[in-house]
């Protein structure tokens, strides 16, 4: 499986950032940052609004070019990657997915195969099989012939995740995939992401607003504050009142829920 071979990178890191920064019109959104993001599992990016978490994700995608510094992806500079070649390795889901008017679920997911068949290549049986697989993974088979526009928010989010799965990338970047969803669908989408990440050995980087969701589904959490990385640790280390106050600038208490063992942060 491509996902497995891609993660067996000699350097062991998916992303290596050195002195990466981003500024617009004299405002620095991300201060020089150096770090390595390792292979598998779910990495959460948290922080207050405007902390630079989405910016960082867009630089990795790369939807923006960095103002300074370099990003290496699978031990190769980001600029050295061909567009389609890169798209086979990495999929990015923006915060607001565009409307897909007139497209059926199956058709939208099939567009995820573009990096493999290209502008003039044929959509072959292998592509079809990958699309079917992606729909099964995301339990979208009953919706295959529905219009994407007619689906609910949670279902539509699953379609975009399925499109990324059909893309067969080993790295997945998600920008607040749950921002428009109710609590049940947040759980549904995030457990799907976590499950796919572990089953298929994907490297997932996800921007999350809700620290409780981040603690529950991420293997590692990176916290940003006004463009600086202020913490990087296991979720249970992040879930400490002092740490949370540093991240969000508001006093929080942490309680442990007995039956599930989840820790929950409550603003005071």
């Amino acid at each position: 499986m491509t996902g497995l071979t891609a993660s067996q990178d000699p350097s062991g890191s998916t992303f290596v950032l050195s002195d990466l920064s981003f500024a617009v019109k004299g405002r620095t959104l991300l201060h020089p940052l150096s770090l390595a993001l390792s292979g598998n599992g779910v990495t959460g990016l948290i922080g207050h609004n405007g902390s630079g978490k989405s910016t960082l994700l867009k630089l990795l995608a790369p939807q923006h070019a960095p103002s300074a510094g370099t990003i290496r992806f699978h031990d190769r500079d980001l600029k050295a990657w061909g567009q389609r070649e890169f798209a086979r390795k990495l999929a990015y889901l923006p915060q607001q997915a565009p409307s897909a008017s007139g497209l059926l679920v199956r058709e939208l997911i099939a567009l995820g195969r573009y990096p493999w068949y290209g502008a003039i290549g044929r959509f072959g049986s292998h592509d079809r099989q990958k699309v079917d697989e992606a729909m099964e993974m995301t339990s979208l088979v009953p919706f295959a012939d529905r219009l994407v526009d007619t689906l609910s928010g949670g279902e539509r989010q699953r379609v975009w995740i399925a499109m990324a799965m059909a893309q067969d990338a080993s790295c997945l970047l998600l920008d607040e995939p749950t921002s428009a969803l109710d609590i049940a669908h947040q759980i549904e989408v995030l457990s799907l992401i976590a499950c796919l990440a572990h089953e298929r050995a994907l490297a997932v980087v996800v921007v999350l607003h809700d620290v409780n969701m981040a603690a529950r589904y991420c293997d590692e959490v990176l916290a940003l504050h006004s463009g600086h990385l202020i913490a990087r640790d296991d979720p249970h280390v992040i879930m400490e009142p002092a740490m949370l106050e540093k991240i969000y600038g508001t006093r929080m208490d942490v309680v442990s829920h007995g039956p599930t063992g989840h820790t929950v942060a409550i603003p005071l």
Binding site: A61, Q63, Q83, R84, E85, F86, A87, R88, A91, Y92, L93, P94, A97, P98, A100, S101, L111, G112, Y114, P115, G118, A119, I120, Q167
Partner: peptide, 18 residues
């Protein structure tokens, strides 16, 4: 293929490598 993908916007088109 481009005509199919481009209406989804520049972001998505770039993601799939157009």
């Amino acid at each position: 293929r481009w005509l199919e993908i481009l209406p989804l916007g520049g972001t998505v088109a770039k993601v799939v490598g157009v």
